[in-house]
């Protein structure tokens, strides 16, 4: 099989991913430049280049179930450097959304943080940093994570128990409409 040949498996899912991420997976020629610059490749189960290879081979489920999209820090180094113009950061982001839609969250803490962050925005219109971190610690079971920093942050006026609220109705409407849009 040619290195850049694409297998037929999972054609429909692949098409959807290519459209959402704005890529053609066959464009990747497996040079590895994305992986070389990826700051978190060392912690991934599949490197960015390997994720592209999985997709080329039609192993879509493997890619969607991987830890890599959840460990991706959205630093965009890969897409910026890819000599073939493949938007790999977009692939990671799209895989993560797709995984979540399938109920797959291999990195629980990352998924929890995203959810709580958006809940905070949805409720207040702005994110309430202190509330977010407290809720995260409670729900992740790491109750005292970073607690040592709290007294100084408090003294410096950088954390507050009260959430700032703004534009709440407008934001609630945006959430409702955006969710029904993507559901279509």
């Amino acid at each position: 099989m040619e290195l850049t040949a694409t297998k037929a498996g999972a054609a429909k899912e692949l098409q959807r991913l290519e459209k959402a991420a704005g890529v053609e997976v066959r464009n990747c020629y497996q040079c590895g430049k994305c992986t070389a610059g990826c700051p978190v490749a060392f912690a991934m189960d599949y490197s960015p280049r390997q994720i592209m290879r999985l997709l080329q081979l039609g192993l879509y489920d493997e890619a969607v179930g991987a830890h890599s999209p959840w460990l991706c820090a959205s630093c965009i180094t890969c897409s910026t450097r890819c000599p073939k113009g493949v938007n790999i950061a977009g692939v990671m982001e799209t895989l993560r959304i797709e995984a979540k839609n399938q109920g797959l969250v291999p990195e629980k803490a990352v998924g929890l943080f995203d959810d709580l962050f958006l809940q905070s925005v949805q409720q207040n219109g702005r994110v309430h940093e202190m509330g977010l971190i407290l809720r995260f610690n409670l729900k992740s079971g790491k109750w005292f994570k970073d607690a040592a920093f709290a007294p100084k942050l408090w003294r410096d006026g950088k954390i507050s128990p009260r959430a700032e609220k703004a534009g709440r109705e407008a934001v609630a409407r945006i959430f409702a409409r955006a969710h029904s849009q993507e559901g279509e």
Binding site: A20, F113, D114, F117, G167, A170, F175, Q181
Partner: peptide
Amino acid sequence: PDWNCCGASAAHNTNHTLAVALPAR
């Protein structure tokens, strides 16, 4: 006045439309 959160990474890793609508307001 009344600015809202841009949605940060949490929005663009969750919902593409939400990720552009929040800042656009």
